[in-house]
Amino acid sequence: MSGDFVVRDLRAGYAGSSVLDGVDLTVGAGEVVGLLGRNGVGKSTLMSTVVGWVTPTAGSITLDGQELAGLPTHRIARAGIAIVPQGRRVFAPLTVEGNLRIAVPAGGPRAWSLERVYQLMPRLAERRRNRGDQLSGGEQQMLAIARALLREPRLLLLDEPSEGLAPAVVDQVVEIVAGLRAQGLSVLLVEQDLHAAFALSDRILVMQKGRIVHDSTTAEFRSDGERGRRLLGVG
């Protein structure tokens, strides 16, 4: 499983207003990179631009050398990028199993199967006949992660996976993502919960005003609390 992901000078926005102002970042194969920043600095716009929901106005996005910037969303997904979006966005009218089945790519031997995701998240197996809108927030988050895994991604984008979840459920989600990290999946993680971000990430990036302003190992970032508070605008 590879997943060298490189973003260079990426610019994007909405209806004439610029949100991303030259983003540069890399996620190495098997690496988990945490992207932090205050609300409104462009983290979710970056995720949306990577998957093609927002069209970039300039810059480059490559996965294992393949240029993805400007491609339609379904081709970016087929190239190996899967997203667990902010707010989960599971399909309300479909059952858990229905949500998962439509994510399975056609043909070929696969590392991830329905059985494997049910093994990883037994709660989903118990709720397989329930509709998406009958699940708790934690169950929806697990479903969104399982759905992304069935795409056999080389890079997984996780946008605020702990948002709106009880602490015990956040721990479960962290445990699942840690398991994926151990299996060598490349992950770009946007997270407001610093404990979760630190627990999962090899490196920490900080975003301000549409640009990456800090890039270090997690240990290095945590070693200077004052700098961290200044970058994140807390305390």
Binding site: V51, G52, W53, P72, T73, H74, I76, A77, R78, A82, I83, P85, R89, F91, A92, P93, L94, G98, N99, R101, I102, A103, P105, R147, R151
Partner: peptide, 18 residues
């Protein structure tokens, strides 16, 4: 199922490679 999912959230369906 794809039609129903697209009615609910077409951009998310596209993000699943469809």
């Amino acid at each position: 199922a794809l039609v129903q999912a697209s009615v609910a959230d077409a951009p998310m369906v596209r993000a699943l490679g469809v």
